[in-house]
Simulated scan of single mutants.
Amino acid sequence: MNVFILISLIFLQINAISCSRGDNSGIFRSCLRNCHITECLDDDTFLDEDKRPFHLVLLNWGCRDECKYTCMWKTIDDFKSRDNPIPQFYGKWPFVRILGLQEPASVLFSLLNIYVNFSCIKQFRKNVRSDSPMYWVWHGFCAVCLNAWFWSTVFHARDFPLTEFLDYSFAFSIMLMNCYCMFLRVMRGTLPRFFNILVTALFAAFYLNHIYYLSGPKFDYGYNMAVNIIVGSITVFGWFAWSLYNRFRLPYVWKAGLFFALFALSTLLEIVDTPPWFYLIDCHALWHFTSAPITYIIYSFIIDDCKYLRKQVQYADIENVSKTD
């Protein structure tokens, strides 16, 4: 399985936001024009604002957005009546809105990932002493994951340019944080301690520069894709190589290898571009779902690894005491 190709295909799928058959069709455009005239004021408010439910007000569904949603279903009905395949709209498949949530399944599964990471860090704190090596590094990893999944929830609940930017930016933060943790673990014991501070500063500077570039006038999907491919490939290769090298000395490293193998397999869902089942669940939502259970594997690995590292420190302290005696 070529991870490089998989990640490339994923981002190519995600970034397809050009005009689609649905929003480019005559019936959709005609419906949209009529809706704007009969339902909307010039400031994007409704002619009859009192009829708008509170949850739509809360999620900032304006009149023009509501027209797009209504006309989308009219267009779908027209396509189905002609036995034509279900079209995309603005580069995305149509979803049934629930309580104002644009992609309810992806919202639910993003929340599931928040729950899993939160419950896993509780288990980590219960099983690993706070004076263990890498203890706070993995807390930072969890914090990054919780933040990224929060913004994934927000983005799938309501797709705005800002929520899209935050989702992409913090999704990359998980990738980069994983690379950072890999580097600290693989290089542990081989470099001076002060070098960790330099590495941390370099990773932080790289991330801030990446976000600064993406915040320009136009979001650079190609650049973001290329950076994710490079960082993701380095991370996967680094963990696999380290796990293979230590497979006999550290019997628990198979968990790290299994996690990244399952992660690579789960990315296959992202290259399947089919309409959502029942207009609720698509392959992207299933990808979010599969990331939740495999998260338990990586946390199981880091619990075992931190316990091992603490024992190594204890043995080293005992040897130093013996030498001084």
Rank of each mutant, 00 (worst) to 15 (best):
W277G: 03
Y252T: 08
T274W: 15
A256L: 12
H288P: 08
P275Y: 03
H284C: 00
P275K: 06
I281T: 04
T274M: 14
F263N: 13
H284K: 10
H288C: 10
A264F: 11
I271M: 06
W287Y: 10
L286W: 07
W287F: 13
A256W: 08
T267E: 13
L268P: 01
H288S: 08
I281W: 06
F289N: 12
L280W: 04
L265Q: 11
F259L: 00
Y279A: 14
A261I: 14
I271P: 03
F278R: 12
F259K: 02
I271V: 15
E270H: 05
L250N: 11
F263M: 14
I281E: 02
W254T: 03
H284E: 09
A256S: 13
L268E: 05
A256M: 13
F260L: 02
T274P: 05
D273T: 09
P276C: 00
F278N: 14
N246D: 09
L258R: 05
A285S: 11
Y252D: 10
L258H: 05
A285L: 04
V253D: 08
E270L: 03
N246Y: 11
N246H: 13
I271T: 11
L269Q: 00
F278P: 04
D282Y: 02
D273V: 10
S266I: 04
F263V: 11
L268M: 12
F278L: 15
V272K: 09
A285W: 04
H284Q: 08
P276A: 03
F278E: 10
P275L: 03
F248R: 15
A256E: 05
Y279F: 15
V272M: 11
W254C: 03
F260S: 01
K255N: 03
W277I: 14
W254P: 03
R249T: 15
F259W: 10
S266N: 10
A285K: 00
W277C: 08
D273C: 06
R249D: 13
L265V: 15
N246S: 09
H288F: 11
L262K: 02
E270T: 02
A261V: 15
F248L: 15
W287N: 08
L262Q: 03
L268S: 07
D282P: 05
W277F: 13
D273P: 06
G257C: 10
L258I: 09
T274H: 12
F260M: 00
L280A: 00
R249G: 06
L250V: 12
L286E: 01
